[in-house]
């Protein structure tokens, strides 16, 4: 994590709301995310956490509220600007790596795509960067020309992370990044993510329903229920001394091993 005092939050959200007809997707969401912080969002299915994430990432247009990224008004941005931002300073890691990877294209091509999209035109350098990132996510360099379809689920997820981080984004959205993985693979991925967050000073918005994952990965936690934020604070405080009835129920419902 970055220790320099930062003058302003990287992501600032005020009064965000999204409705599906008369049904509430999420409402009254406000928070600030500072550089280097990982914000976990937990809640059961249908609590609005995925709606919130897709509004933040620009996949959906909220009905009300404001989102500022690094001082820029995201909702007032033109589509080209917004899309450029989502390829450069922002990134999105999907739960299912198949949604975030091009399965018919080699691992190197997958990592290189964002670089080429922002103008990289030197094959040798693109490949070198690809090899470097494969190393960082612990995939053997010899696999650079293999397609992701030949990779295990854990490797695919690590490749998706490499593909997203190659342009050094400052803000990464993650939707259940460890969902669907074996427990041992999950641990390895968590360790990798923690290291990347720390070394690159990333800010992360992490949506999950896995409380063990947020405890290890998130600095701060936001609990959602029925589209509203019922509680937020330092992660271990929210988990160990939950103030809201719903959070208390959520925490006490976790099976212990």
């Amino acid at each position: 994590m970055n220790t320099r005092p930062e003058a302003a939050p990287l992501l600032s959200v005020r009064g965000l709301a999204k409705y599906y007809g008369t049904r509430i997707g999420c409402t009254d969401v406000s928070f600030d995310l500072w550089p280097g912080e990982v914000l976990g969002i937990v809640g059961e299915s249908g609590s609005g956490k995925s709606t919130l994430l897709s509004c933040l990432a620009g996949h959906q247009q909220p009905d009300r509220g404001e989102i500022h990224f690094d001082g820029r008004d995201l909702l007032a941005m033109s589509e080209p600007e917004r899309r450029r931002l989502s390829r450069t300073e922002q990134a999105f890691v999907h739960q299912n790596p198949r949604d975030g990877l091009r399965m018919g294209i080699s691992a190197g091509g997958n990592i290189g795509e964002r670089l080429m999209a922002v103008g990289a035109r030197n094959y040798g350098q693109i490949r070198e960067t690809g090899l470097d990132w494969l190393g960082r996510v612990e995939i053997a360099g010899a696999r650079i020309d293999d397609r992701p379809s030949a990779f295990s689920g854990g490797m695919q997820q690590r490749l998706q992370i490499a593909r997203n981080l190659v342009t050094a984004p400052r803000l990464v959205f993650m939707d259940e990044p460890t969902g669907g993985l074996d427990v041992s693979v999950q641990a390895r991925l968590l360790d990798l993510l923690r290291g990347l967050v720390r070394d690159l000073g990333l800010s992360v918005v992490l949506v999950t329903h896995d409380l063990a994952v947020v405890r290890l990965l998130a600095h701060r936690l936001m609990v959602m229920k029925s589209g509203q934020v019922v509680e937020q604070g330092v992660t271990d405080q929210v988990l160990d001394d939950p103030q809201h009835g719903y959070t208390q129920l959520l925490v006490s419902s976790v099976l212990q091993v």
């Binding site: 390829r87 091009r102 190197g108 795509e113 080429m116 094959y123 693109i126 490949r127 650079i144």
Partner: peptide, 12 residues
């Protein structure tokens, strides 16, 4: 960017 991905794949 995708156009160059195709060319990249060719070279790879």
């Amino acid at each position: 960017g995708l156009m160059h991905v195709k060319l990249y794949e060719d070279i790879a």
